[in-house]
Design a protein around this nucleic acid. Structure first.
Length: 490
RNA sequence: GGCCCCGUAGUGUAGAGGCCUAGCACGCGGCCCUCUCAAGGCUGUAACGGCGGUUCGAAUCCGCUCGGGGCUACCA
């Protein structure tokens, strides 16, 4: 039970730099869970301080996919909120006084070093295998005039923080407990283009927006001392930190779009995964199931028992096989009518079907859902499994691997089936099965497998199909007989 | 190179000194069911990286070692 806790404010802060990343959804899920558990708020903030990597339309994708996944935010660029704007590019004036104060207090200084000089410096440090790397403080204590006389000068300065020797490198993490981080160098906090870097913006915004818990990826552990130092200089109370494990590729490297199609959040939707299945799956990465032999769990259950201490410190590898199983499970647990709707929506979203859908096709699909429901892994599997239903009788092609399964006497079998079916009044699956068993299996002494096999091939052209008798019922008597006749006379 | 984080079956995890001849889920194998394929039922397979300590006793604590990962940008 959620005891009386102080409402927490958490945020997810993706950058609009391309296709939304699956890691964004992973972070959002855990942030949201804790916000809900404490009765607090979940904020979406867009961190678009990098003008070079900014990609038009990426932000919209973030909104769309996070909503699709069922992770709604209480405050954000598109829904507003008391701390608007929620887009860092619209907050440039907000950061200025904080930077000015740091400079005035002697905690930050201007740096006119050119990118070239810095690159060269870095190169030399790497090559010399020195233990100490980072900016060499050439500009520290200099005026513009003084610096200008030296090489590697660039007219527009950046602002760097003056990291003290005794900076606190240890902090408490909600997931890992006491941890320490590397000694930082004099990090740039304000870029030449007037935009703050992440380090400056995140501290100012998290403070101004009343964020109480910062939940982010493990890759930020090494930056946390810088952030803590900024809070200290500015006289602000820092939030609590929880560093989530990093999602991994199969080779255990940090998950990347290049090595892993699943790194793109949109990929899951395109493949036809159900958002509730993906959410459940993500929840299980680095987090134990609530019930030891039952990994299916609702978001509410997740929230109910949520505890940072349960989050694993080991970066989990994506196992799509498990997601497949889970997606199938969620598909099977839907009402057939609901599933039909989801399939149609998906076909429309992927552009395979028009909007509005052809009523006849929609009806046929809906009627057919019960026979494919337990055979689907993703929504994309539906149409291919039902191909024979949406194909005209004279367009059915007998596939090679289906033909190979045909016994010697297949024409005899199919002819007998035609005769049996022809006199059938009610063309129901039950009646079809009844008469075929009577005439072929019992009457001719043919094993069910070889009696129904040729009929299946004639009806669908395929070796593997949904249940035969139900398929024939859906197809109707006329079409079924037509197909069998064409088959036997080919 | 330096600093930091991490190390239970193929994958996700349970395990917080004896309840562990290490549990569960997915995967994979077998059997049953069966009109194919699924679904379902039963069943099998497979792990504490290594080495030293501490202890009556270690997957659990300590050290070293090996391995993986992250950071080391005017990217986040």
């Amino acid at each position: 039970m959620s005891t009386s806790q102080t409402p927490a404010r958490l945020r997810v802060a993706p950058s609009p730099t391309g296709d939304p990343h699956v890691g964004t959804a992973y972070m959002a899920l855990f942030n949201l869970a804790y916000a809900r558990k404490t009765g607090g708020q979940f904020v979406l903030r867009i961190e678009d301080t990098d003008r070079n990597r900014y990609i038009e339309g990426s932000e919209k994708q973030i909104f769309e996919l996070l909503r699709w996944l069922g992770l709604p935010w209480d405050e954000g660029p598109d829904v507003g909120g008391p701390y608007a704007p929620y887009r860092q590019s619209e907050r440039l004036e907000t950061y200025k006084p904080f930077v000015d104060k740091l400079i005035a207090d002697g905690h930050a200084y201007y740096c006119w070093c050119s990118q070239e000089r810095l690159a060269k410096l870095r190169e030399e440090q790497q090559a010399s295998k020195q233990s100490k790397t980072g900016y060499d403080r050439l500009c520290y204590g200099m005026s513009r005039e003084e610096r200008e006389k030296l090489p590697g000068f660039t007219p527009t300065p950046v602002v760097r923080m003056l990291v003290p020797e005794d900076i606190e490198l240890t902090f408490t993490d909600l997931i890992r407990g006491e941890i320490s981080a590397p000694m930082p160098d004099d990090q740039v906090i304000l870029k030449a283009d007037g935009f703050p870097t992440y380090h400056m913006a995140v501290v100012v915004d998290d403070h101004l927006m009343g964020i109480t818990h910062v939940v982010r990826g493990e890759e930020w552990i090494s930056s946390t001392p810088k952030h803590l130092q900024l809070y200290k200089w500015l006289g602000l109370t820092p939030p609590q930190f929880a560093h989530m494990p990093l999602l991994r590729n199969t080779d255990h490297s940090k998950i990347s779009k290049r090595k892993n199609p699943a790194a793109r959040l949109a990929w899951f939707r395109e493949q036809g995964y159900l958002p509730e299945a993906l959410r459940n799956f993500l929840q299980l990465l680095g987090y134990p199931p609530a019930d030891d032999d039952h990994e299916i769990s609702s978001f509410d259950d997740f929230v109910e028992n949520f505890d940072w201490a349960k989050v694993s410190t080991v970066g989990p590898v994506f196992d799509l096989k498990k997601l497949d199983w889970m997606n199938g499970f969620y598909i099977r647990s839907l009402e057939p009518a609901q599933l039909a709707e989801r399939i149609i929506e998906h076909l429309q979203w992927t552009g395979q079907w028009p909007t509005p859908a052809d009523p006849q096709k929609a009806k046929l699909l809906t009627d057919a859902v019960p026979i494919i429901q337990e055979r689907l892994v993703t929504l994309n599997d539906a149409l291919p499994k039902l191909g024979f239903l949406f194909t005209a009788d004279d367009q059915i092609v007998i596939e090679d691997d289906a033909r190979k399964t045909l016994p010697e006497n297949w024409k005899e079998v199919v002819s007998a089936a035609i005769d049996a079916l022809d006199g059938l009044e009610s063309f129901s699956a039950e009646a079809i099965q009844g008469i075929l068993r009577e005439k072929l299996v019992e009457g001719m002494g043919i094993k069910p497998k070889f009696a129904f096999g040729p009929v299946r091939v004639g009806i669908t052209g395929q070796r593997v199909t949904p249940p035969l008798f139900e398929s024939m019922e859906l197809l109707g008597k006329a079409s079924s007989l037509e197909r069998l006749r064409r088959f036997v006379n080919e």
